[in-house]
Simulated assay, not measured.
Amino acid sequence: MDDRSARTRGIALTEKQRIAWLRLIRSDNVGPVTFRELINHFGSAETALDMLPELSRRGGASRSIRVASKAEAERELEIAERHGATFIGIGEPDYPPLLRQIDGAPPLLAAKGNRKVTSAPAVGIVGARNASISGMKFAGLVARDIGRAGYSIVSGLARGIDTAAHRASLETGTIAAMAGGLDKPYPPENIGLLNELTDGEGLAVSEMPFGWEPRARDFPRRNRLIAGMALGLVVVEAAVRSGSLITARNAADFGRLVFAVPGSPLDLRCEGTNGLLKDGATITTTPEDVLEGLRPLAEPDLFSPRPDVREPAEDTPSALRLPPSDGDRERIAGALSQVPAEIDEIIRHTGIDAATVYLVLLELDLAGRLQRHAGGGVSIMPD
């Protein structure tokens, strides 16, 4: 599983670019997808920042968009440095290679700990917070054996199964994806575990700003990071309505293998995992089940970027063009509804060239009038 070549791919951001990227992703209405489209269209984060007010105005914003200042970005970089953390850009060598391939990958990840752990192929392990003793033991067994086989273990630093998985892989390499800022671990009782992790062979990552207290809606965002970083996901004890099943859905959407540990039909903590098995997940009763399933995938060339994935490319010739006409803008907006539509459908329906459609969608997005959905669909926000 020698994937050292994966770490040599990518180009480091300059300090100026890192500040501009951080400003852009911290500005109002700019999420990962919007960030990527802005840089693909305008060629650099600095040009995109200059265009944000005009784009949001053209999209019908009711108020001026807040653009993060250079001072704010520099302050966040200073805070990260005080905490022993750095920001990794999506095109840089230490960015988790599989994560960069998913739709909506964070353009920047705050990271603290051993960044070399991202060079190993990863396996996610998630499950119930109120896990049983046997569930905790099995999660630890799987994490330990898979770690010794050369994989890093990814989880969410939560109570229960996550904690068992991280603890069992402290020596072999583990990654904690966090819902809040790196300085706001949840639950607080795992602060000690987080410190052990980042002081040793582990890494903590977050796309949220320092000081950000995790909210309920931040955990599904965190879950997609776990699924995105991993070749496969092992689910141990998960109720029907649980974050672990959200992570499993993300993993399936990303084309990852999903492994589920069967449990008693009488235990509600196993209802979700048993359901995954009915839906086609790989039954898992030993670590070897996971290793055998992943063996054909864990090759060095796995980490080559997919040809259809566009990464933000700085310092390319600008794609600036004349603004869309009012007629084009009205036709594109009129084609949208509150039902998600694929962008290719909008292009075919309106007969307008793709570049113009993408630019109008950016305008609506920055004006707070567009909603983006998993899989690339878009819909108009209700008035």
Score class of each variant (00 low, 15 high):
residue 83 H to Q: 14
residue 14 T to R: 11
residue 256 R to S: 00
residue 125 I to W: 05
residue 94 D to P: 06
residue 83 H to T: 02
residue 158 A to P: 01
residue 239 A to P: 00
residue 41 H to A: 09
residue 80 A to F: 06
residue 237 E to T: 06
residue 383 D to V: 11
residue 249 R to H: 11
residue 70 K to D: 15
residue 148 R to Q: 11
residue 216 A to F: 13
residue 133 I to Y: 12
residue 26 R to E: 03
residue 7 R to P: 04
residue 263 G to K: 13
residue 39 I to T: 05
residue 78 E to I: 05
residue 335 A to N: 00
residue 251 A to N: 03
residue 247 T to Y: 06
residue 257 L to E: 15
residue 364 L to N: 02
residue 23 R to D: 00
residue 282 T to Y: 14
residue 112 K to V: 13
residue 325 S to D: 01
residue 280 G to Y: 06
residue 374 A to P: 07
residue 311 E to F: 15
residue 36 R to I: 07
residue 81 E to I: 01
residue 360 V to H: 06
residue 22 L to T: 08
residue 56 S to L: 09
residue 194 L to K: 14
residue 195 N to I: 11
residue 10 G to N: 07
residue 56 S to Y: 08
residue 144 R to T: 02
residue 42 F to V: 00
residue 296 P to F: 13
residue 294 L to E: 10
residue 124 G to A: 15
residue 379 S to T: 05
residue 221 R to C: 10
residue 111 A to Y: 02
residue 211 G to C: 04
residue 286 T to C: 11
residue 370 L to I: 00
residue 266 L to K: 11
residue 72 E to W: 15
residue 302 L to I: 09
residue 175 I to Q: 04
residue 318 S to Y: 07
residue 43 G to R: 12
residue 188 P to Y: 08
residue 307 P to S: 03
residue 376 G to D: 08
residue 350 T to P: 13
residue 152 S to F: 05
residue 329 R to S: 06
residue 1 M to Q: 10
residue 121 P to E: 12
residue 141 L to T: 09
residue 257 L to V: 02
residue 313 A to H: 10
residue 16 K to H: 13
residue 225 L to H: 10
residue 89 G to T: 01
residue 76 E to T: 03
residue 27 S to P: 05
residue 113 G to H: 05
residue 306 R to N: 09
residue 326 D to M: 10
residue 13 L to K: 02
residue 291 L to M: 15
residue 245 L to N: 00
residue 69 S to L: 10
residue 99 L to K: 06
residue 125 I to C: 01
residue 171 E to R: 15
residue 332 I to T: 01
residue 338 Q to L: 07
residue 288 E to N: 07
residue 135 G to K: 02
residue 290 V to M: 00
residue 107 P to N: 12
residue 374 A to H: 11
residue 318 S to C: 12
residue 24 L to H: 13
residue 218 D to L: 01
residue 185 P to G: 13
residue 382 P to K: 14
residue 135 G to V: 01
residue 198 T to I: 12
residue 8 T to W: 14
residue 152 S to E: 14
residue 120 A to V: 03
residue 136 M to Y: 07
residue 249 R to L: 11
residue 93 P to W: 14
residue 108 L to N: 01
residue 70 K to T: 12
residue 349 H to A: 05
residue 331 R to I: 04
residue 49 L to E: 01
residue 262 P to V: 05
residue 61 A to K: 05
residue 29 N to M: 00
residue 121 P to H: 15
residue 125 I to G: 01
residue 80 A to L: 10
